[in-house]
């Protein structure tokens, strides 16, 4: 399911004249300021950015499912990673960015 949304994202990007999806740049900024502290390290089991072994099983899930986990908290991750000031859209963009990095590293 996630694979389909990634393909859709890639197709949309290609069709729009190879311009990068703006959500990725926005998501990267959100990631850098809020998510990196855990997701660069794998703190408390957080999947490490670009680590295909950790992200692999998650790529089988839909974006909506990943977003739901991030918003509500999942495993040892608190809701929104404890960054409650983030909007749902910002969290969504951060997920788009993080999943895009798995594709690139593969």
């Amino acid at each position: 399911m996630k694979g389909i949304s990634v393909i859709t994202l890639v197709l949309a990007t290609v069709l729009s004249g190879c311009a990068e999806d703006p959500r990725l740049a926005l998501g990267e900024e959100v990631y850098r300021q809020n998510c990196k502290v855990c997701h660069a390290q794998g703190i408390n089991g957080a999947p490490i950015l670009g680590n295909s072994k950790m992200w692999g099983p998650r790529l089988g899930q839909s974006h909506e499912e990943l977003l739901s986990h991030a918003l509500s908290g999942y495993g040892l991750m608190p809701a929104k990673g404890g960054k409650t000031h983030l909007t749902d859209e910002q969290v969504s963009n951060a997920i788009f960015y993080m999943t895009s990095q798995v594709e690139i590293s593969n």
């Binding site: 502290v37 855990c38 390290q41 703190i43 040892l76 608190p78 990673g81 404890g82 960054k83």
Partner: peptide, 29 residues
């Protein structure tokens, strides 16, 4: 390597501890 405040009890304990030199930790710090 960084050690991060990943749960509310970590933050509450450190901020509220009688010997803590810092009381404004937040989740993710």
């Amino acid at each position: 390597y960084p050690d991060v405040a990943v749960a509310a009890p970590c933050v509450d304990c450190h901020n509220g501890h009688k010997d803590t030199p810092r009381t404004d930790f937040k989740l993710g710090d």
